[in-house]
């Protein structure tokens, strides 16, 4: 059962990792790092391309590429077409997508039991 850890230990990515967003055109990068290098393997398992794509699907994301950086206990995620036009084209308040690092950090650490 994972529900015990879900209530007593870290619950979401924000508890074990920090992140920063950057943009170029309609492409977003999210650099994510484990606070503790012992959590790096867990980070790699949880933050995979398909889970990230699912998290940004409502904004029209078409592709996620993940670059692992074990020496930094982190990874770089590059997400295409997620900015709804980018800083110049978007009607969104945050055309850069700068706030989206914290959307990623809201990812649950416990994978759905049915999945």
């Amino acid at each position: 059962m994972t529900s015990m850890t879900a209530t007593t230990g870290p619950r979401r990515l924000h508890d074990i990792a920090h992140a920063r967003a950057g943009d170029k055109g309609d492409r977003l990068n999210l650099a994510v790092f484990a606070y503790d290098e012992r959590d790096y393997a867990r980070l790699v398992t949880i933050v995979n391309e398909s889970r990230v794509l699912e998290m940004f699907a409502h904004r029209g994301a078409t592709q996620v590429r993940r670059y692992l950086l074990p020496k930094l206990s982190g990874m770089n995620l590059v997400i295409d077409n997620v900015l709804q036009g980018g800083v110049n084209g978007a009607l969104n308040l945050d055309g850069h997508g700068k706030t989206l690092s914290f959307l990623l950090l809201s990812m649950p650490l416990v994978v759905d039991d049915t999945a």
Binding site: D23, K24, R27, A31, L69, G74, N76
Partner: peptide
């Protein structure tokens, strides 16, 4: 180390 890591990859795509 954390502040430097975050900026090292800022607006980077393929780190290699």
């Amino acid at each position: 180390e954390r502040t430097v890591k975050e900026q090292l990859l800022y607006e980077v795509h393929d780190p290699s």
